[in-house]
Nucleic acid binder design. Structure first.
Lengths: 106, 106
DNA sequence: CGTGTAAGGAATTCTGACACG
DNA sequence: CGTGTAAGGAATTCTGACACG
């Protein structure tokens, strides 16, 4: 159904690698999780696993924090962002339904 | 130049996760490396890092081994496979050059 | 509020080797 | 040949806390 894109959202990267890719410290990354800005999965041993998507999110968060935006506000913005996304998909779904399409991807 | 595809080839996955995704044991994965079938990168501490692309390769290798194909033969096949790929890209490059295109991606 | 750090433990990974077949 | 395993060490990650501001 989505061969290529699945890579982007698969949670397979450990925190050390995320640090390298984002330039952030473990402390920062864990803190942003505490503030509900990122949601890594955990593998048996409680090890955090991130996706490439998470990494992009973290980079955005970091630049906002640098600009002085508080994590609380960032969380609000991300929530709104997500709501818009949902609505967009909903509408797209209705359009597709109208034209008898299944799986409106691509 | 290639935003999406870069994920597939980025070496960021540790061996434990590769085991989960492929169903192979660490022993098998390291052995296939010894036999020059996969080429993980190493992060500072000598930890192996694999890409999603490597994972796909490993799955193919595993099924061939199960069929009784020896790693030596698999290596040969992969080498031929790679040569064909190079030739294909070469030809494509010439075609693109002929039409004045830069970067024949997509 | 956001981040650094030392602390101690648990989980992960590594290498080289012996074993079986 | 391909893979399992026990062995000991090194690197990674985790949590909870104290600190600064």
């Amino acid at each position: 159904m989505d061969r290529e894109l699945s890579y982007k959202d698969k949670k397979v990267i450990t925190i050390g690698t995320v640090c390298e890719l984002t330039g952030l410290t473990e402390r920062q990354i864990r803190y942003y999780e505490e503030k509900k800005l990122v949601f890594p999965e955990r593998s048996k041993g409680k090890i955090r696993k991130y996706s490439f998507s998470d990494i992009e999110t973290l980079i955005k968060i970091a630049s906002m924090v640098e600009e002085g935006v508080q994590t609380f506000e960032i969380r609000q913005k991300m929530k709104k962002q997500k709501e818009k996304e949902i609505e967009r998909k909903l509408i797209q779904g209705q359009i597709n339904a109208h034209f008898g399409l299944r799986n409106g991807k691509r």
